[in-house]
């Protein structure tokens, strides 16, 4: 009984963290069609921003939920203006340029923070269920990603801003003819996507020891989640992260954490082979 509760919590945590990792990429790649291979490094910088802010005496939740997204969003803004802006519509080139950016950020972080592991303690203590100890922070992650997905849905679906953004991504020329500047909207969307990546990195920072190359651990998972999700942003994100999260946890508990990761990746390869348009390319068509 206790064990099944623990497993349930772990599955929810796995799903939530996958959704959280992928949210920023879903905006940048899913909406803007920019293959951001520096996504993992944006998360890494979010983590470093949090840790630095906490060490300077800022409250940990303020650091995670406000400071880190802002800083990473601003970095994203600079990157968009300097590099990405020139490459919209050139899929492979964005991929290569962002790969270069990711190497650049890794090098930067190595020079500033050194090639050592930094970490902060989790701000929420755990509690016991029967013989097992559960990390209370898991619930916080679940809460954050639920709030995030709901607010993304509301923002994109019901507000005028979301409508303009979605319209511009579909037909930027029409949006321009209607008097909106695609350039600015792209800029703002990239800012939001980077800020989301920064938030994800910040929220996950207390759980992992941070090194400059931490980003590499996220990037593949984020990509397969977004691509397997398919064209519908939020529904795709939820369905693919649920699928992969469950697969991951079943194999983690059944065999070992490494096999959990390997099983997730194999599941992704099989899924993409069967449904090359992603889950929402086949099911839940036309949803947001």
């Amino acid at each position: 009984m206790d064990l099944s509760f623990v497993i349930l919590v772990e599955i929810f945590y796995a799903v939530a963290s996958l959704a959280l990792i992928s949210a920023g990429l879903a905006v940048v790649f899913g909406m803007m069609k920019v293959i951001n291979l520096a996504h993992g490094e944006f998360m890494m910088m979010g983590g470093y921003a949090t840790i630095t802010a906490v060490q300077l005496g800022v409250n940990v939740f303020v650091a995670m939920l406000i400071i880190a997204p802002l800083i990473v969003g601003l970095i994203g803004l600079v990157v968009e203006r300097l590099v990405i802006r020139h490459l919209y519509g050139r899929l492979v080139d964005t991929m290569l340029a962002t790969w270069g950016l990711s190497l650049f950020f890794i090098g930067m972080a190595t020079m500033i923070f050194g090639n050592t592991t930094t970490s902060i303690t989790t701000p929420i203590t755990g509690f016991a269920v029967g013989d097992y100890q559960i990390n209370g922070y898991n619930f916080f992650i679940f809460f954050v990603s639920a709030v995030l997905l709901i607010s993304m849905y509301v923002l994109l679906k019901t507000t005028r801003l979301g409508l303009i953004a979605r319209g511009t991504m579909q037909r930027s020329d029409i949006a321009a003819a209607l008097g909106y500047s695609p350039d600015r909207i792209y800029m703002a969307t990239f800012f939001c996507g980077s800020a989301l990546s920064g938030l994800a990195g910040a929220v996950l920072a207390p759980l992992v020891g941070l090194v400059p190359t931490s980003g590499g651990a996220y990037i593949a998972k984020a990509f397969i989640t977004v691509i397997a999700g398919g064209p519908s942003l939020i529904v795709g994100l939820i369905s693919s992260s649920s699928l992969f999260g469950v697969v991951n946890q079943i194999f983690t508990f059944g065999i070992s954490p490494v096999f959990g990761d390997v099983a997730l990746l194999i599941a992704a390869v099989i899924l993409l082979r069967l449904l090359p348009q992603g889950v929402t390319g086949k099911f839940f068509k036309g949803k947001m």
């Binding site: 490459l87 290569l96 340029a97 270069g100 950016l101 650049f104 890794i106 090098g107 190595t110 020079m111």
Partner: peptide, 17 residues
């Protein structure tokens, strides 16, 4: 003095641009 990865990254970005 300067991290290796950083320079490789800059080279790649500059070449793509």
């Amino acid at each position: 003095l300067i991290d290796n990865t950083l320079i490789m990254g800059i080279i790649l970005v500059l070449f793509v641009l």
